[in-house]
């Protein structure tokens, strides 16, 4: 019990320091560790009057319900596939933009374009959903307006579940391009300028320099970001999916992720036991993936491992 001895030592020697760390420690105990005991709820038939611990046990019934209903496969598939798509598309877009910005001149041009790209980072997904409505609404949306004016038939996009795969992937990339490109831009700025100069002297073209200098130098950053993305592959971006899709069940087949599913089961159908079971299932998967990916990062690049 070395940690206990250490705590005792600090209690004696550094009581003020311990006190200074206490607010965060207490917070974590109350809001993170205490709810962990609520995991038992996943194995119970929740009865509001009897509370979490008084409710009767029901074994794996909550889990069985989730899996047999067929929803498990759908939401898990969606969560994982969207995250994979996000990782691939976002990284490609962000790296491309970062390389382009680093290559073009003009301080003001850089400032203004970067400022514009950062704008989506600042707004909430609620505002983005207003944007989407403005463009894709069946009756008034600019997209259908354009289709009509070209003599085409308007499309009810809010009932086309396949289209939303692309809309969501696009919007996610749209929202993160400013942020992500800054991360890569910082990495590019860290590359020694002399390497480029000597490459130019040796007659390397622009694309060759990108291919043989920039991209290899970015590789560590990409690897870390991708591995971290994989660690979170079972965690859906709740804000994004809920604001884009909400309770439009026409789209659930292609857009429902674990997080939105749990949220709806909790808030609208009050299925405490089942949503707790799904939440626990997700937490265990996340734990497994994060631990595994962190183990890999520690092998590849110990500097960047999470712990």
């Amino acid at each position: 019990m070395r940690w206990l001895n250490n705590l005792r030592y600090d209690l004696r020697k550094n009581p003020v320091l311990l006190l200074m760390a206490l607010p965060v420690i207490l917070y974590v105990i109350v809001f993170c560790y205490l709810p962990m005991s609520g995991i038992v709820l996943a194995f119970k038939q929740f009865d509001y009057a009897q509370g979490i611990f008084g409710s009767p046990w029901c074994g794996f019934k909550n889990f069985r319900f989730f899996f047999i209903s067929g929803q498990a496969a759908v939401v898990m598939r969606n969560t994982v596939l969207y995250n994979i798509a996000f990782i691939i598309v976002n990284n490609i877009v962000e790296i491309t933009v970062a390389i382009f910005i680093s290559e073009i001149g003009g301080r003001w041009f850089k400032k203004i374009t970067q400022g514009a790209m950062f704008l989506p980072t600042f707004i909430s997904w609620v505002v983005v959903s207003a944007f989407v409505y403005n463009i894709f609404s069946y009756d008034f949306g600019a997209f259908n307006h354009l289709l009509r004016s070209m003599g085409g038939e308007p499309v009810d996009i809010y009932s086309q579940s396949t289209l939303w795969i692309f809309i969501i992937i696009f919007l996610n990339s749209w929202k993160h391009v400013g942020y992500g490109s800054v991360v890569y831009l910082a990495a590019i700025m860290g590359i020694d300028a002399e390497i480029y100069e000597s490459a130019t002297l040796d007659g390397a073209g622009e694309l060759q320099k990108i291919r043989y200098i920039t991209l290899p130098c970015l590789k560590p950053t990409v690897v870390i970001l991708v591995i971290m993305g994989i660690g979170n592959i079972f965690r859906g971006d709740f804000d994004l999916f809920y604001q884009m899709v909400g309770t439009n069940s026409l789209l659930f087949n292609t857009t429902d992720v674990i997080d939105t599913f749990v949220f709806r089961s909790l808030l609208f159908s009050q299925e405490y036991g089942m949503s707790a079971a799904v939440g626990l299932f997700q937490s265990v998967l996340c734990f497994g993936f994060l631990t595994a990916t962190n183990w890999i990062i520690r092998k590849v690049d110990p500097e960047n491992s999470l712990y």
């Binding site: 420690i25 962990m36 734990f287 999470l306 712990y307």
Partner: peptide
Amino acid sequence: FKSRNFLTMFVFFTVLFNGGLVP
């Protein structure tokens, strides 16, 4: 501060694992 590693891990563990939304 000798407990720094233990307390960091204690806090960080909540990133790796949590009880989920419902509890």
